[in-house]
Design a protein around this nucleic acid. Structure first.
Length: 268
DNA sequence: CATATGTCCTGAGAGC
DNA sequence: TGCTCTCAGGACATAT
């Protein structure tokens, strides 16, 4: 998502609109819309960063726009899937394309304008980015806990950036069962988890994300991602495990209210 | 402090 | 066919 909207770096925000539909509840936008617009219009987008699952527009001056897409939020440079769920339109000068759109079908996402203190509060509350960790840091941060490894991987206060799809995927790649308590993993298993985490996230980014059957996720150019074609277990309940082939089928359980997929044979 | 649960939201799909 | 119900899951508030 961040890479997709990178072309608008350097642009100046000419106008900012928050379209609203009578039928759809508005997105959480802080501060209020009026103050938000006043502080953003006229600013330049100096950089677009990412921290975990958050997209960060760094403006000249000291403010940052932080977009949390959560389940169904998108950042787009082209026409959105529907006009009804368009949440914000940044009209730009000095960049091509000339608009940055934020779209969110379910509206669970948030859009915040933060000063440096507020931004520091956010970065202090969530863990380091999962793709920017020194070796051994995954174990250092998750190890010694009694929670199941998959639940800990989803806790953004420990590591930021692993979501439900990729938690199942990386544990299958690492051959670690999702319910295993963190404090039961061996050093070898932690190494496998750490390697699989890097690998799965890097591949998912390379294939531009996972567009599931509901078709919600789109790239910045409103195209499908490709990583769903590489899923090993997610959403594949009852199908053959790609690792042990016909010997076992993928199982689905619920952990911390989230669908969890694994192969009981390969992930002991 | 660590962990568990409830809540928000809309649309797709199942089941009748 | 059209209705109701369940489910998807990210982060945070609240409870244990």
């Amino acid at each position: 998502m961040r890479r997709g909207i990178a072309p608008v770096v350097g642009a100046r925000v000419r106008a900012l609109r928050f379209p609203r539909s009578r039928r759809i509840k508005p997105l959480t936008i802080t501060p209020g819309r009026r103050a938000f617009q006043r502080r953003v219009v006229g600013r330049r987008i100096e950089a677009i960063d990412r921290l975990g699952k958050r997209i960060i527009l760094v403006l000249n001056g000291s403010d940052r726009v932080v977009f949390e897409p959560r389940m169904t939020g998108l950042a787009l440079l082209t026409d959105p899937p529907t006009t009804e769920h368009l949440r914000a339109r940044f009209e730009l000068a000095g960049a091509e394309p000339s608009e940055l759109l934020l779209w969110d079908r379910r509206g669970l996402g948030t859009l915040r304008l933060l000063d440096p203190d507020e931004f520091a509060e956010v970065t202090g509350r969530i863990g380091p980015d999962a793709l920017d960790l020194p070796r051994g840091e995954v174990r250092a941060r998750l190890g010694g806990r009694r929670r199941p490894i998959k639940v800990a991987l989803l806790d953004q206060a420990l590591l930021a950036g692993v979501g439900n799809i990729y938690a199942s995927e990386l544990l299958h790649m690492a051959r670690v069962h999702p319910t295993r308590p963190c404090d039961a993993l061996s050093a070898r298993e932690w190494t496998a988890v750490e390697r699989a985490l890097q690998r799965v996230l890097a591949d998912a980014i390379r294939y531009e994300g996972s567009t599931l059957n509901d078709g919600t996720y789109r790239t910045a150019l409103n195209e499908e991602g490709g990583y769903q074609n590489h899923h090993r277990v997610y959403g594949r309940e009852g199908r053959a495990c790609p690792r042990c082939k016909g010997r076992h089928t993928v199982e689905r359980i619920v952990l911390a209210q989230r669908a969890t997929f694994f192969c009981a044979r390969c992930q002991a």
